[in-house]
Amino acid sequence: MSAPENLPPAAEPAQPAVVPDPVPLAAVPGAPVPVAAVPEVPAQPGAARRLPRAVGVALATAGLLAVTAASAAVTVAVGKPDDKPAVVAAGAPGTASPTASAPASASASASASATPSAPATTEPPAPAPKPSSTVKGSVSNGRHEGDLRFFLLPIPEGGEAYGPLDGMTMTDEEVAEMFDNQDGIMRILRSYSYKESATRVYRTADGKAEVTVTLMRFGSTAEASEFAKNHTMNLDPIEITGDSAAHGYIRKPKQQAYTGSMTGISSQGDVQYKVDVDVKGTPDKALLSELMKRQRDWLTSGR
């Protein structure tokens, strides 16, 4: 290393000054270590408003138009979305001078040494409170009062709702779309003293099935029962156990890698209920029977 320039003159030849080499920054205790940039995790788009798939209806009663339509045959793979990587904020690195000078003495070096200390013990953060429903309803002698969403089958432990946790009330346009926009469908519904509909879609905890529950409230128990009996689909029929008033349908996929579906239809009091299940491969009708029974019990007691 060359001697610094512009030294003052001296009587004797100047001895070259020895300057210590700069200490590498990574060797200095507390110096920040370059960290590779962490790619930003894209914000997950909000869950799109989803509607029950179109179904066919055959309504036959005195003086009314008989309507039948084919159900949609859309194949969708149902699976559990990949877990998103957690982003952990790192602590601020320590600061250090860009250069370091030689220690003045051995004792100074010893006193400047950092003494490791035991990490402080902290309590784990309390879990976030579980969201609960904010809608209310009551049932008496088969008549359901209050918010119809209250009577939607509760999401099982570990399940994940698509859209609002409490479900959604449906407009007339959405109800008509559910019936494939058949001519006169709203007129037919009103002939049964139709009042309102509500729906909710959720994914099961194991990520293997997607469940859609749809409720339709009518003017009386007799009207809801009659409408449910005439609500049919152009699919293969299946038996539903545990719900004597129910009838069901199944669509098996052409390949096990595709999505199959099941639908159950029944009524309790002044409400018709319909449960749709989409699952990869051939559906197990035992799952549909269980969901239909649970929905019936919930409509019966409200709890």
Rank of each mutant, 00 (worst) to 15 (best):
Ser2Asp: 10
Asn6Leu: 08
Pro9Val: 08
Glu12Lys: 13
Pro13Thr: 09
Gln15Pro: 00
Pro16Lys: 09
Val18Lys: 08
Val18Phe: 03
Val18Ala: 03
Pro22His: 01
Pro24Glu: 06
Ala27Gly: 00
Gly30Glu: 09
Ala31Met: 08
Val33His: 07
Pro34Ile: 07
Val35Ala: 11
Pro39Ile: 08
Gly46Ala: 10
Arg49Gln: 11
Arg50His: 07
Arg50Met: 15
Leu51Lys: 02
Arg53Phe: 13
Ala54Phe: 09
Gly56Lys: 04
Thr61Ala: 06
Leu64Lys: 13
Ala66Glu: 14
Ala69Asp: 12
Ser71Glu: 10
Val74Tyr: 06
Thr75Cys: 08
Thr75Ile: 10
Ala77Tyr: 15
Val78Asn: 04
Val78Ile: 15
Lys80His: 12
Asp82Ala: 10
Pro85Arg: 05
Ala86Cys: 06
Val87His: 08
Ala90His: 09
Ala92Glu: 15
Pro93Tyr: 12
Gly94Thr: 15
Gly94Cys: 13
Thr95Ala: 15
Thr95Cys: 11
Ala96Tyr: 03
Ala104Pro: 00
Ala104Lys: 14
Ala112Gly: 11
Pro119Lys: 12
Thr122Phe: 14
Pro124Ile: 12
Pro125Asn: 10
Ala126Trp: 12
Pro127Tyr: 10
Ser132Met: 02
Ser132Phe: 07
Ser133Asn: 03
Ser133Trp: 00
Thr134Val: 08
Val135Arg: 01
Lys136Arg: 09
Gly137Pro: 02
Asn141His: 01
His144Trp: 06
Glu145Gln: 01
Gly146Phe: 09
Gly146Ser: 03
Gly146Ile: 11
Leu148Ile: 06
Arg149Asp: 00
Pro154Asn: 03
Pro154Arg: 09
Pro156Phe: 04
Gly158Met: 01
Gly159Ile: 00
Tyr162Arg: 13
Tyr162Trp: 11
Gly163Arg: 09
Gly163Glu: 07
Leu165Ser: 15
Gly167Thr: 13
Gly167Asp: 13
Met168Gly: 04
Asp172Tyr: 01
Gln182Asp: 11
Gln182Glu: 14
Asp183Gln: 12
Ile185His: 12
Ser191Phe: 04
Tyr192Met: 01
Tyr194Asn: 02
Glu196Met: 03
Ser197Tyr: 07
Val201Ala: 12
Ala205Asp: 14
Asp206Glu: 15
Gly207Thr: 09
Gly207Met: 14
Ala209Asp: 08
Leu215His: 13
Met216Val: 06
Phe218Ile: 06
Phe218Lys: 00
Gly219Ile: 13
Gly219Met: 07
Glu223Thr: 08
Glu226Val: 08
Lys229Arg: 13
Asn230Asp: 14
Thr232His: 14
Met233Ser: 07
Ile240Ser: 03
Ile240Tyr: 08
Ser244Ala: 15
Ala246Ser: 10
Gly248Pro: 04
Tyr249Cys: 03
Gln256Asn: 11
Ala257Asp: 14
Tyr258Ala: 12
Thr259Tyr: 01
Ser266Glu: 05
Ser266His: 08
Gln268Asp: 06
Asp270Val: 01
Tyr273Trp: 06
Val277Thr: 11
Val277Cys: 05
Val279Ser: 12
Thr282Cys: 02
Thr282His: 08
Pro283Asn: 12
Lys285Tyr: 07
Leu287Asn: 06
Glu290Asp: 15
Glu290Trp: 03
Gly302Ser: 05
Arg303Thr: 05
